[in-house]
Simulated scan of single mutants.
Amino acid sequence: MNAQAEIQMKQLPGDFAIWLFILAELSVFALFFILYAITRARFPEMFAEGQAQLNVLAGVGNTLALLTSSWFVVRAQQKVHAGQKGGNVFLTLALVSACVYLWIKSAEYQHSVALGFDLSTNDFYFFYYGLTAFHMFHVILGMLILMLLMLQNWRGKYRSGRMNEFESGACYWHMVDLLWLVLFPLVYIL
């Protein structure tokens, strides 16, 4: 293995700018998670009562939808990188999985509101709606990025050695997935 190949193996996938953006996004979420933890420590009974009203199975469904979607993005990236057809099929499946997440989350919101729980109910619901809606916004943005990747792939923009933009989009999508893997147990289980 030559030195240049060794250096390339150690580089992060995607563009450096996406990693700065991901770091900024993770920092914002970390701040929200800290505020959530502090408020939860102050009002443990309120948070326990709020969590008891949440549908953990819906949270598990959302987790499975996002994990599945990330797997499809990985498969799409592998196909595109190898110059094989089928990358857009996997991106489409990733988008379908993301739509499943949005459908479950929307049904969950409707159910909570029907029970009389909204942003103003108490601090738990303020954080529940705030954190999950902020995450849902990132899911929607990620879906738009995946659609752009599909369009660019359809136009033949990506191939081995020209994957930087595709990898950046995939990294963003995986960040969204990672955030849910922290958010789900934090809000629904712990």
Rank of each mutant, 00 (worst) to 15 (best):
M1H: 09
Q4C: 00
A5G: 11
A5D: 12
E6L: 12
I7V: 13
Q11L: 04
P13G: 08
G14A: 09
F16Q: 10
W19E: 04
L26D: 07
S27Q: 09
A30V: 07
F33E: 11
A37T: 11
A37K: 06
R40F: 04
F43C: 04
F43M: 06
P44F: 02
E45V: 04
E45R: 03
M46L: 05
A48G: 12
G50L: 02
G50P: 03
G50M: 07
Q51V: 01
Q53L: 11
L54P: 00
N55W: 06
N55A: 08
V56M: 09
L57P: 09
A58W: 14
A58V: 10
G59S: 11
V60S: 00
N62A: 05
T63H: 03
T63E: 09
L66A: 02
L67C: 06
T68Q: 12
W71N: 13
F72C: 06
V74D: 07
R75Y: 09
A76I: 00
H81V: 11
H81N: 15
H81P: 00
A82F: 08
A82V: 08
G83Y: 04
G83E: 08
K85R: 13
L91W: 04
T92W: 09
T92L: 13
A94N: 05
A94H: 03
L95Q: 05
S97L: 05
S97H: 02
C99L: 07
C99P: 08
Y101V: 00
Y101H: 07
W103S: 01
I104N: 08
K105E: 15
K105R: 11
S106H: 05
Y109E: 03
Q110R: 14
Q110A: 14
Q110G: 15
H111I: 07
V113G: 11
A114G: 05
G116C: 06
F117D: 05
F117V: 13
F117C: 05
D118F: 10
L119V: 12
S120V: 03
N122C: 10
N122Y: 04
F127S: 02
Y128S: 03
Y128E: 10
G130Y: 11
G130L: 08
F134W: 12
H135I: 04
F137T: 09
H138P: 01
H138Q: 10
V139Q: 14
I140C: 14
L141S: 11
L141I: 15
L141W: 14
G142W: 00
L144P: 00
I145Y: 01
M147I: 04
L149R: 01
L149C: 15
M150K: 14
L151V: 08
L151Q: 14
Q152G: 01
Q152T: 01
N153D: 13
W154K: 13
G156A: 04
G156F: 03
G156H: 06
G156K: 03
G156W: 07
K157E: 15
Y158F: 12
R159I: 06
S160E: 04
S160A: 12
S160Q: 07
M163H: 07
E165C: 08
F166T: 11
E167C: 02
S168E: 10
S168H: 08
G169Q: 10
A170E: 09
A170V: 06
M175A: 10
V176Y: 09
V176G: 09
L178T: 13
L179H: 12
W180Q: 10
L181K: 00
L183W: 02
F184H: 06
F184I: 01
F184D: 03
F184W: 08
L186E: 03
V187R: 05
